[in-house]
Design a protein around this nucleic acid. Structure first.
Lengths: 104, 104
DNA sequence: TCTATTGTTTGATATTTTTCGAACTGAAAA
DNA sequence: TTTTCAGTTCGAAAAATATCAAACAATAGA
């Protein structure tokens, strides 16, 4: 059975969220999800990165509260926790959307 | 003569700004400046940190575009680049102000 | 001029983070 | 059941970051 930890809205920590966004690969993933909704790992527009590294970045994004998974068969679909983020950090998601996608 | 590099508004990079804010000491400094305007190093509410480490953090904040210095005698006064940040990343400063000061 | 003050820079070390390949897990398909 | 597929976890190595003390720089004041 799959038990995974998602921080609640009040558990989200701004410093941790900023640290998560402070890596170019993770910023790219988040902007990708913010623009185009749900995606699985192969849908993130990042290149030249091993799947274990990608999994590591996903974990950091999830644990900071930025993204959430949905399991369907053998695939893990990820999406931005837009509503939760809007409530916890108003303006943040819009700021990410306003920004042209960073180069990897 | 003192020549120091401040990024222009268009040179500011969101990922670099987030990385700068992703450290608890630096987050504390930025929130302190956002709330109370200009301060010199001894005015930052951070403890148990050497002056060389503090200087290092200040450099990262300055180079990311978050803060700017003003030299007066032997003191260096730092302030948030609020207007520039408002223009480049609308909502960011307000988000920092909405957040209760992080614990060191 | 000498000294104290405010802060930066340098060099070194410790810690954290990023990265990968290999092994593993769970689910679907053959 | 065996294989394949999508992804995670583990263990190790490399790279980046945080930290400090000591040395340095610039200014103000005695």
């Amino acid at each position: 059975m799959k038990t995974l930890t998602l921080p609640s809205i009040s558990e989200m920590d701004l410093t941790a969220v900023c640290a998560a966004l402070g890596d170019p690969v993770r910023m790219k993933i988040v902007q990708c999800l913010a623009r185009s909704g749900e995606k699985n790992c192969s849908g993130f527009e990042v290149e030249h990165i091993s799947k274990s590294t990608l999994s590591h970045h996903i974990k950091i994004l999830r644990e900071s509260g930025l993204i959430q998974p949905r399991f369907q068969g053998k695939e893990h679909f990820y999406s931005l926790r837009k509503e939760d983020l809007d409530r916890r950090f108003p303006g943040m998601v819009e700021m990410l959307l306003n920004e042209p996608a960073s180069k990897e």
